[in-house]
């Protein structure tokens, strides 16, 4: 039982990254009808927002201490982060320690801005072109974004520490009534899961309970009629693109302590997220989230040793297998709407 619980948690954790990216993809697809192959790159840029934030916070003034010598006999170099000098020593250290969560503050404006530029500058011109062209141009854009990041940050993964408070593991089993030391889980992964639930809930609440969200939902259902009612739906859809980019970026920011960011992490996630979107149903937001979590859990069950000994290699292919079966039996996906992307 505890092994099962552990796998479910593993799966939910992985699934939350899938769900966040797939949610963004679906938002873009559902509103603008564009298949965005650059969405993985947005995830990756979010992660590099965290790297940038950490670099900014650890910018240091270098002073030399003539009393202490390093091993070469030169005066020892002492680096003092500016934040330590500006604020108190303790508060500066606290800021640096919490650099990953703080990066959210940087990532949201950066990603929304980037989404705006992408939509207004490039994707706007592709609404009337075939889906293949949209795929191709965003694929090209993904390569470009990836290479730009590689140029500035190098090709190696950059390790990002989680805040001290969430390093290490916590005994999750004890919290829900198991014996001690049964279900021990890395703390940051629990944070990631909670964080993604909050983000997903926020997006749904925004769409459900605000006037803006209501208009957007109406536009997703029938763009033309909303336009006829005198509402500038394009402007709102542009903002939704920004929000979708921000969701991907936030997923990237918080993912950095789990996997050190490198320039091609986006592409690795993109393929799986597309599969997730298709399984959930093109254009269905709940479908994307549901499929993200479900496929995550399924994948972690498939990587249990008991399952792997029965069906070797199943953990590598389970997601793709499920996608193939779903596409062939339920072409619209789990919760796909009628009339979306049907030819």
């Amino acid at each position: 039982m505890d092994a099962l619980l552990l796998q479910i948690m593993n799966g939910l954790d992985k699934g939350s990254a899938y769900a966040l990216i797939a949610l963004g993809l679906t938002l873009i697809f559902g509103t603008l009808g564009v298949v965005n192959f650059a969405h993985g790159a947005l995830f990756m840029i979010g992660a590099f927002c965290a790297v940038t934030m950490q670099k900014i916070l650890t910018l240091s003034a270098t002073t030399y201490d003539p009393l202490k010598l390093d091993f070469l006999g030169n005066p020892a170099m002492i680096k003092t982060p500016y934040v330590n000098t500006w604020f108190s020593e303790d508060f500066g250290a606290l800021l640096i320690d919490w650099s990953v969560p703080l990066s959210i503050l940087l990532a949201i404006p950066v990603m929304i801005g980037l989404g705006f530029i992408m939509e207004r500058g490039l994707i706007k011109h592709f609404y009337k072109r075939p889906h293949a062209d949209q795929i191709l141009v965003t694929f090209g854009l993904a390569i470009v974004l990836q290479e730009i990041i590689k140029y500035f940050y190098g090709a190696n993964p950059i390790p990002m520490p989680a805040p001290e408070m969430f390093k290490g593991s916590i005994d999750f089993g004890m919290m829900i009534g198991f014996d001690a030391n049964q279900v021990i889980y890395p703390a940051w992964r629990l944070v990631y899961f909670l964080f993604s639930t909050v983000v997903i809930a926020a997006v749904f609440a925004f769409l459900q309970f605000t006037t803006f969200g209501m208009v957007v939902r109406a536009g997703m259902a029938d763009r033309e009629t909303v336009g006829l009612l005198g509402i500038d739906i394009d402007k709102r859809f542009t903002l939704m693109f920004g929000i979708a980019a921000a969701v991907a970026g936030l997923a990237g920011v918080m993912y950095t302590p789990i996997n050190s960011p490198n320039y091609h992490m986006g592409m690795d996630f993109l393929v799986l997220s597309f599969v997730v979107v298709v399984v959930g149903g093109m254009g269905s937001l709940p479908g994307a989230v549901l499929a993200g979590f479900a496929l995550g859990v399924l994948q972690s069950f498939a990587s249990m040793n008991e399952v792997k000994s029965l069906l070797p290699g199943i953990d590598q292919v389970i997601i793709y297998l499920v996608a193939i079966v779903i596409l062939l039996t339920r072409p619209r996906g789990l919760m796909g709407r009628k009339g979306v992307m049907e030819e």
Binding site: V35, H131, A132, I135, V271, F274, V275, V278, M282, P312, G313, Q316, V317, Y320, L321, A323, I324, L327, L328, P331, M341, E343
Partner: peptide, 29 residues
């Protein structure tokens, strides 16, 4: 299998098959 669907679904199906073969070539095969 893939040609039962068209458009973006076809692209994703072929992508899924290729990734599957890639993963299998690394592991079970």
């Amino acid at each position: 299998v893939s040609l039962r669907r068209s458009g973006i679904y076809f692209s994703i199906l072929t992508l899924a098959f290729a990734q599957m073969s890639f993963n299998l070539a690394y592991s079970v095969f």
